[in-house]
């Protein structure tokens, strides 16, 4: 058991190391120049001396391998370097933005569960009925409509036409709970829609599976009431795969908030990464990629470990 855990954790560490190394070297190959993006985003002539001065200041005149080893050395000490554009440690920049993305992702995930699980159960119980058909239709729509399309449609309806909710933006909690929450609604609903669809489908199929399983049929034959069978026995069986899906979705959600954050001007880590790429802010790109890939790899690892705990065959 301990060996299995150790193996999974070591694998995760190696995976993260490989990802950040690939990111580091692909940034070196990627065209574009952070110095130019800082000195002249507009594309006006840059003084060569000014260019050289800033290049030296940022340490970009060093050989690539020197930059790589010093970055790795910093990483071991928990130092991700300093962002060019923000002129402060990458850790601080991410520390500001990651909680906002987590907030959005967690709210979306909880919403998705609240919507997806009950509807999935209804769909399974009423299999073949009109309601099931309708829900299946909506869930395939949820899986296929891109986040930005849905986002703009919701803005059009709820902000521009009905004037019920703000169209975009982010207000820190410190500046007012109400303003904060109002601006959270549209982006989290937008993000939740696709996930809810996945959760609904997974709930429906695993509910059906568990309804038809050998262990359930005798219970009814034994004379237990329908509701008792559903709530106590069927639900317990069907929740395991659903929980797995939800765990995996969290990793996807955090990486997948890019479009949602852009549409709603939500200043999370995804928009931070996109800006960093646009400005070729290398340390910041590496830092964001490290954190995002670590979240992804670690959630997968945790799911693996849980499976290992629950099901000895998976070890």
């Amino acid at each position: 058991m301990g060996k299995f855990f150790l193996k999974r954790i070591l694998t995760a560490i190696v995976q993260i190391f490989v990802v950040v190394s690939i990111v580091f070297f692909s940034l070196q190959i990627m065209p574009g120049d952070p110095v130019l993006m800082m000195l002249s985003r507009d594309g006006s002539a840059v003084d060569q001396e000014a260019y050289d001065a800033l290049e030296a200041e940022l340490g970009l005149d060093q050989p690539v391998m020197t930059q790589y080893t010093s970055w790795l050395a910093g990483l071991v000490h928990g130092d991700l370097g300093k962002s060019y554009g923000e002129n402060r440690p990458v850790v601080d920049a991410i520390g500001d933005r990651l909680p906002r993305t987590l907030e959005l992702a967690v709210v979306a995930l909880v919403l998705a569960c609240i919507i997806g699980i009950p509807l999935g159960i209804i769909s399974a119980v009423r299999r073949g009925g009109i309601l099931d058909l309708l829900l299946t239709l909506i869930s395939s729509l949820g899986n296929s409509v891109p986040v930005f399309v849905l986002g703009y449609i919701l803005v059009l309806i709820f902000s521009l036409n009905m004037e019920m909710l703000p169209s975009s933006g982010f207000v820190p909690l410190a500046r007012g709970l109400e303003n904060h929450v109002l601006r959270l609604i549209l982006p989290s609903v937008t993000l939740a829609f696709g996930v809810a669809a996945s959760v609904l489908r997974m709930t429906r199929s695993s509910m059906l599976e568990s309804l038809g399983s050998e262990s359930v049929r005798p219970l009814r034959a034994k004379g237990l009431s329908k509701s008792k069978v559903y709530l106590k026995h069927v639900m317990r069986n069907m929740l395991i795969p659903v929980v797995t899906i939800i765990g995996l979705q969290l990793g996807n959600l955090i990486a997948g908030t890019v479009l949602c954050e852009a549409v709603f001007n939500w200043p999370g880590i995804a928009t931070l990464l996109v800006d960093a790429i646009n400005n070729r802010d290398y340390p910041l790109i590496q830092g964001c990629m490290l954190v995002l890939s670590a979240i992804f790899i670690l959630t997968n690892m945790v799911v693996d470990l849980l499976y290992g705990l629950l099901d000895p065959r998976a070890r």
Partner: peptide
């Protein structure tokens, strides 16, 4: 960003 570098 690539366009800027190539123009420079």
């Amino acid at each position: 960003a690539t366009r800027i570098e190539r123009s420079n």
